[in-house]
Simulated scan of single mutants.
Amino acid sequence: MSSFTNFYETWFDHLRQLLNQLSASPRPPSNPDQQRDLVHLVRKVMSHYSDYYRAKSLAAHRDAVSVLAAPWATSLERSLHWIGGWRPTTAFHLVYTESSIRFESHIVDILRGQRTGDLGDLSPSQFRLVSDLQCETVTEENAITDELSEWQDGASDFLVEIPNMEEKIGRLISVIEKADDLRLRTVQRVVELLTPHQAVEFLIAAAELQFGIRGLGVDQDRLRTNGD
């Protein structure tokens, strides 16, 4: 697990670099070249997330229990985890929150008929598609939660069915991989529903949330350690 923890620290540092690139990107794009640059940057960030889940899957096959416990995360992060990571439906709360904030900040321009092109300028069809995807994601989330509950309900089996240990750990690996697959697919599908400009803003919000919670968690863990 120490190897994945080292990977995560490097991956997290690279995410910060990508966040800086996202934040510095031209929005809204004023020409086709800038539009292509945004598309390339979004793909680059999504590839970075794919790398994370690929490495995490390998770690789960080596030590599923440790991956579920997420030792690389702070106590605060773990308190918010759903099966070793963020809850997929968080993506939709981000879209709605960022859309509301930007809509309110540009409401005068919007009332004048001016288009901002950002997350505050989502079309009715985009809202409908995001809502439909949210419903699908909630259904999948609940099904995976039920799978984990079934696995946990069989905890007493560990005392009497040692020969089946490999099978039980295999089931846990499957649950973790399904959860991570849903996390990645959710972000990918949300990004597909947005324009490049909107996708960049969504990815910025997602990364800033991740950095913000981790920063608070690091501070709390440090205070707790010093207090002891």
Rank of each mutant, 00 (worst) to 15 (best):
H81E: 00
L80S: 00
R128T: 15
L182A: 14
H14F: 03
Q126T: 08
L129R: 07
P196T: 04
T116P: 04
P88H: 03
A207C: 11
S99R: 07
E177W: 02
D37W: 01
R185C: 11
P26H: 08
K178N: 07
A143Y: 10
I176W: 06
R222H: 13
I101M: 09
R16M: 04
P196K: 09
F202Q: 09
Q198S: 11
P28N: 10
E104N: 05
K168P: 04
S66C: 05
R185Y: 08
M165Y: 07
T145F: 08
E208T: 06
P163L: 09
W82G: 01
E201D: 14
P71K: 06
P29R: 14
V191R: 04
Q34A: 10
E136I: 10
R224S: 15
S25E: 03
Q114P: 03
K168D: 11
A205I: 05
V65N: 06
V187P: 03
A60E: 11
T225M: 14
L58G: 09
H14T: 15
E192F: 09
W151Y: 13
L94R: 04
T89S: 09
L203I: 00
L111K: 07
T137W: 00
L129K: 03
P32C: 13
L111R: 14
I144A: 11
Q210E: 07
E201I: 02
L18C: 12
R54T: 14
L172P: 07
R27T: 07
L203T: 02
H61T: 12
A64H: 02
I83R: 00
Y8C: 03
L58M: 12
D181V: 01
G113E: 00
D153V: 00
D63R: 02
E166A: 10
L223V: 09
D37C: 06
K44W: 04
R222T: 13
R102Y: 05
S47L: 11
H106P: 01
D221L: 12
A64R: 02
T195R: 01
G84M: 11
D132T: 02
T89N: 05
S47R: 12
V175D: 13
R78S: 08
W11P: 01
L41N: 05
I83F: 00
R43I: 00
H81F: 13
F92E: 06
S30P: 00
